[in-house]
């Protein structure tokens, strides 16, 4: 494997997103939403203004869990199928580059763009809130940003996988939307439904582990479990085994959500 080839493709993808202002636009969306949530998040309770950082993060998590998977899927769904459909794939593959290098280059470049906008967008908010952040709060906020990056990278990996499997861009976009619906909206409902139908008699022990089969849930657990204010609020502590609440373990699960779809993509893309 030649790293320079991966870097060449990755830097093209990254600079494309900088130049067409994709990175700027996404960073601004993150900043704007985060500030609105931080300031008006408690409006339902009849107050406005900045609250505790824990509650702000909890509200941000609910936002990010919808937004980042969507952005990542939109960013990556045509990575390969787009080149194939436009007709530029053959020329790229005629270079002294392997298919794996091309795939990784695409992924790394897009992941860098997504990571950069996530950190820039939420980092700006951290600066605005800096007066209210003590060391502990900063620790949680950095944790939130890092897990947001991981969430984005996991869904980007799924998107790149779809872009290898799909026959054309239209189908790839359909698959991307279906993927978003499944993981973000349907998955938890299915689990809950199964739990209710069986009256909680069956599957109660494996239920928390099934949550690991969804990167969006892993992200939720990763954040909410680390926040003292919130843990009790969501009642999660009672259902979630403490053995699984280790952030490093959850981080590893997220890494698996990055590596496995990419691995499948590269297997499929090999010829």
């Amino acid at each position: 494997m030649e790293i320079t080839q991966i870097a060449t493709i990755a830097s093209k993808e990254f600079w494309d997103r900088i130049r067409n202002r994709w990175v700027l636009a996404v960073a601004l969306v993150f900043t704007a939403f985060a500030l609105v949530i931080a300031y008006f998040g408690a409006a339902q309770q009849g107050t406005v203004g900045f609250r505790s950082i824990d509650l702000t993060i909890a509200s941000l998590v609910s936002l990010v869990i919808y937004l980042i998977p969507l952005i990542a899927l939109v960013l990556g769904f045509d990575a390969i199928v787009g080149e194939r459909e436009r007709g530029s794939l053959d020329l790229l593959l005629s270079m002294p580059i392997t298919r794996l290098e091309l795939l990784l280059g695409k992924y790394v470049g897009l992941a860098a763009a997504l990571t950069f906008s996530t950190i820039a967008g939420f980092g700006l908010v951290a600066i605005v809130l800096s007066a209210r952040l003590d060391l502990n709060a900063l620790y949680h906020y950095v944790g939130f940003m890092l897990s947001s990056v991981l969430l984005g990278c996991a869904f980007l990996s799924l998107a790149v996988m779809l872009s290898v499997f799909a026959a054309d861009r239209t189908r790839a976009s359909g698959l991307a939307i279906a993927t978003w619906f499944f993981f973000v909206l349907v998955f938890d409902l299915l689990l809950l439904g199964a739990l209710v139908v069986t009256g909680g008699q069956w599957g109660g022990e494996i239920f928390p582990y099934l949550l690991l089969a969804n990167p969006a849930d892993v992200f939720r657990i990763l954040n909410i479990f680390s926040l003292d204010d919130v843990r009790t609020l969501y009642g999660l502590a009672t259902v979630f085994p403490s053995a699984l609440a280790n952030p490093w373990l959850l981080g590893l699960v997220m890494l698996a959500w990055i590596v496995v779809p990419l691995g499948i993509a590269s297997w499929r893309f090999r010829t």
Binding site: E2, G87, S94, M95, P96
Partner: peptide, 15 residues
């Protein structure tokens, strides 16, 4: 890689 470095390719309807 060595082979491809010695080859130039212009595909039909280059994009």
């Amino acid at each position: 890689r060595a082979v491809r470095r010695t080859v130039g390719y212009l595909p039909e309807n280059v994009v």
